[in-house]
Design a protein around this nucleic acid. Structure first.
Lengths: 211, 211
DNA sequence: TGATTTCAATCAAACGATTGATTAAAATCC
DNA sequence: GGATTTTAATCAATCGTTTGATTGAAATCA
């Protein structure tokens, strides 16, 4: 598999694509805006990627490439329910901080959420590459922590709720900020969210493997 | 406040706007697509709404109008924590079913989520009209159920997580369907989600006002 | 080595198509 | 028949894409 990071004009166009596609959507972003932000000419898009749609796919590939280097290291499955619960807490913290504060990842997340929302053909690759393996891994952890069947519908739904609440703090960020009276979600605010969600997680897990 | 339901061509255009704006986004929807779906002429948009942007605002007004007739009846604040908890469960069930299965509401929800995502000027009205009062009401319930301060940051974050997990099952629906092996989220599937989220809710609330 | 050719890359300019908006005439309604 | 609504036709602007020219560095030749 090709894993080389694009360079030069290609990289600049992909960066512009991640930013503008994620911020305003694919259709609302013009090739001229892309070229201007990348500091190059409009024709470069067709030359390097075959067109605007090709740039979108290149952005998708870039997201996949950068993600698997960020979200790795949760492959080891703990032995005890307590260790599994601790690992879920660690994962929750990493997820919330990644979604809400990660400066470098802001464009990545924005682009991916937009891509999911537009329900395009890109969704297949996103799902198979990024979501399915992750979700399956968390299911294993969750099952270990609660003593349930990792392949059961119950566990899969619980994990979606678990991840979904974290994702909402990114999707509904402008709303959250307004309601919370926060100018922005920085590390301090993210920590408050993590603290609260961790309490919820512990309550849910505790009830599950109670006698 | 004007509360009359639009009729005729206006209603057809608003319905088309809710559907197409919600499905493909505002920028990706042309006035000709709108007119075709509404069974009228492009010029009708400018005539009735002053332009494409005016139709967007009219759609927003329609969402607000239809929402307050759907999500009403949670104004009475129960006396006991148990009653408040029960009301939260009822609200959760209504929310999940509304988000995932409501046939009539599919366009409404899609439009609103898209509007939030685009972070446009419409967000102010959405927030003040639909979200803030609702969120505040749920906070009151949550506080009553757990014995906390309804204005505390903790309660507000908990309520966002509570609502956010439900919303995710709508935003990430294509992903959820794929992972769950569901052809669609119908009443049966929605019930499974509700059952699971209700378990989570009970676990969280139980821990809160334990001795 | 020095001259020539090749090639990827970038640019300004222009293309046809489509966009949202506008106009005035035709149609419809009360 | 006067007011309201819908229509076809047209507008300038912008869209994504293509074109032909130009660049500079590597490759090839003499």
């Amino acid at each position: 598999m090709e894993n080389d990071a694009p360079q030069g004009t290609q990289a600049a166009l992909i960066a512009a694509g991640l930013h503008l596609f994620g911020q305003h959507g694919f259709a609302a972003t013009s090739t001229r805006d892309l070229a201007a932000r990348a500091g190059t000419n409009v024709a470069s898009i067709a030359y390097h990627f075959g067109g605007k749609e090709g740039l979108r796919r290149a952005c998708l590939r870039e997201v996949a490439r950068r993600m698997q280097s960020v979200l790795s290291g949760a492959d080891r499955v703990p032995d005890t329910p307590e260790a599994a619960a601790r690992q879920l807490e660690t994962m929750l913290r990493a997820l919330v901080f990644f979604l809400t504060t990660a400066r470098e990842a802001a464009d990545l997340v924005g682009f991916m959420l937009r891509e999911i929302g537009e329900d395009g053909p890109a969704l297949d690759e996103i799902y198979q590459t990024l979501i399915e393996p992750r979700h399956r891994a968390v299911c294993t952890l969750w099952a270990r922590a609660t003593g349930q069947d990792p392949d059961s519908e119950e566990v899969r739904i619980s994990v979606f709720a678990f991840i979904g609440q974290a994702i909402y703090f990114r999707i509904g960020r402008p709303i959250v900020e307004r309601r919370m009276g926060w100018a922005a979600i920085g590390p301090a605010e993210a920590q408050k969210i993590v603290d609260r969600l961790t309490q919820h997680l512990r309550a849910i897990l505790a009830e599950r493997h109670a006698p």
